[in-house]
Computed example of a mutant assay.
Amino acid sequence: MTENKVALVTGAGQGIGRGIALKLAGDGFDIAVADLPFQEEKARAVVAEIEAMGRKAIFVAADVSKKADIEAAVDAAASQLGGFDVIVNNAGIAQVKPITEITEEELNTIFAINVNSVVFGIQAAAAKFTELGVKGRIISAASIASIKGFPILGAYSASKFAVRGITQVAAQELAPQGITVNAYAPGIVGTGMWDLIDEKLSEINGKPRGQNLKENVDSIMLGRIETPEDVAGVVSFFAGPNADYVTGQVLLVDGGMLYN
């Protein structure tokens, strides 16, 4: 096993993924920044940020809904960065729509990106950990919507409940190999995803743009919107030595919205 630690972060070109990639780089990881091909410019900017911190980084183009892309990304991380220790299945999409209006295509799309990708990531990482003899870490994106279903977020809530279940199952199955499997559950993060949710809620309930977001932020006990860095701190914990004895958990990082 090599001395350098290597992490692959999906959806790392912006938002929470970027925050996670930079935090893990600060923790001493070399980073494979995975994102869609059209996000390459943003992703390469993140690579440059990581290199400026004195760590190695590569960009890997990947559509996480495709198993072959995730397998190729894991292989690239291991071969180009010299090891493989952590996968962060971060990439995901949201959808704001009444349950009665969700189309078959929309349902298939959100599950392909939010759920299938987590299964594929677990499979690819577990295989690589086994190949390298590494007791690796698998960390996936859940949500407050994995603990409580939210109106107008039916498909999204369902996809995140699925991530929670998959995390529990994978943790039990992979524990004999020393692999831990956990997930982080953000609340309202100030990224493009919540801008989209606010916009769609406005169309549905007629409230002015920004009001739905403000009302949701007002419900946070700590009194402020969440940042990608808030989320990244929890991922850092799961990826580090202080979480050696933690597996199968979905940790809320929401400023005090839900209590589990």
Score class of each variant (00 low, 15 high):
residue 229 E to F: 04
residue 81 L to W: 01
residue 247 T to H: 11
residue 207 K to I: 01
residue 199 E to D: 13
residue 43 A to T: 02
residue 10 T to L: 01
residue 6 V to T: 07
residue 183 A to C: 10
residue 18 R to P: 05
residue 202 S to V: 07
residue 78 A to F: 08
residue 234 V to M: 15
residue 102 I to E: 11
residue 160 K to G: 08
residue 36 L to S: 13
residue 99 I to L: 13
residue 119 V to T: 09
residue 239 A to Q: 09
residue 18 R to K: 14
residue 133 G to N: 11
residue 7 A to P: 03
residue 14 Q to N: 13
residue 119 V to H: 13
residue 224 R to Y: 10
residue 60 V to S: 09
residue 87 I to F: 01
residue 79 S to F: 05
residue 9 V to Y: 10
residue 205 N to P: 00
residue 53 M to I: 06
residue 169 V to F: 12
residue 255 G to I: 05
residue 227 T to V: 10
residue 90 N to E: 03
residue 84 F to T: 07
residue 7 A to C: 07
residue 73 A to M: 03
residue 87 I to D: 00
residue 71 E to H: 14
residue 47 V to N: 03
residue 237 F to I: 08
residue 106 E to N: 08
residue 29 F to Q: 04
residue 181 V to D: 07
residue 132 L to M: 10
residue 247 T to Y: 14
residue 228 P to L: 11
residue 25 A to L: 04
residue 87 I to K: 00
residue 217 V to P: 01
residue 158 A to K: 07
residue 65 S to K: 04
residue 119 V to N: 08
residue 116 N to W: 14
residue 56 K to S: 12
residue 109 T to K: 15
residue 205 N to V: 01
residue 171 A to T: 04
residue 109 T to Q: 15
residue 190 G to C: 00
residue 243 A to C: 04
residue 234 V to G: 06
residue 244 D to E: 15
residue 183 A to R: 03
residue 58 I to W: 06
residue 76 A to F: 05
residue 152 I to E: 11
residue 4 N to F: 02
residue 258 L to C: 12
residue 8 L to F: 05
residue 174 L to I: 08
residue 148 K to L: 14
residue 163 V to W: 10
residue 169 V to E: 12
residue 203 E to P: 00
residue 241 P to E: 15
residue 146 S to T: 05
residue 181 V to H: 10
residue 147 I to Y: 14
residue 89 N to F: 00
residue 4 N to T: 14
residue 12 A to G: 05
residue 54 G to C: 06
residue 210 G to K: 06
residue 37 P to M: 04
residue 231 V to P: 04
residue 231 V to C: 14
residue 171 A to Q: 06
residue 250 V to R: 07
residue 191 T to N: 08
residue 182 N to A: 08
residue 110 I to S: 02
residue 112 A to T: 02
residue 63 D to K: 14
residue 101 E to H: 04
residue 159 S to A: 14
residue 81 L to M: 06
residue 224 R to K: 14
residue 140 S to I: 02
residue 147 I to Q: 13
residue 181 V to W: 10
residue 84 F to W: 03
residue 23 K to F: 06
residue 10 T to D: 05
residue 77 A to S: 04
residue 222 L to C: 03
residue 24 L to N: 08
residue 143 S to E: 09
residue 205 N to H: 03
residue 35 D to F: 01
residue 186 P to G: 07
residue 64 V to T: 15
residue 2 T to W: 00
residue 40 E to A: 13
residue 33 V to K: 02
residue 115 V to A: 10
residue 103 T to C: 05
residue 231 V to H: 08
residue 155 A to C: 07
residue 38 F to R: 12
residue 92 G to S: 06
residue 43 A to R: 02
residue 223 G to C: 10
residue 10 T to Y: 01
residue 4 N to R: 15
residue 157 S to I: 02
residue 79 S to C: 04
residue 200 K to I: 05
residue 115 V to C: 08
residue 80 Q to H: 11
residue 26 G to Q: 04
residue 183 A to T: 03
residue 73 A to Y: 01
residue 244 D to C: 00
residue 135 K to G: 00
residue 118 V to Y: 05
residue 85 D to F: 00
residue 77 A to F: 07
residue 170 A to S: 11
residue 99 I to P: 00
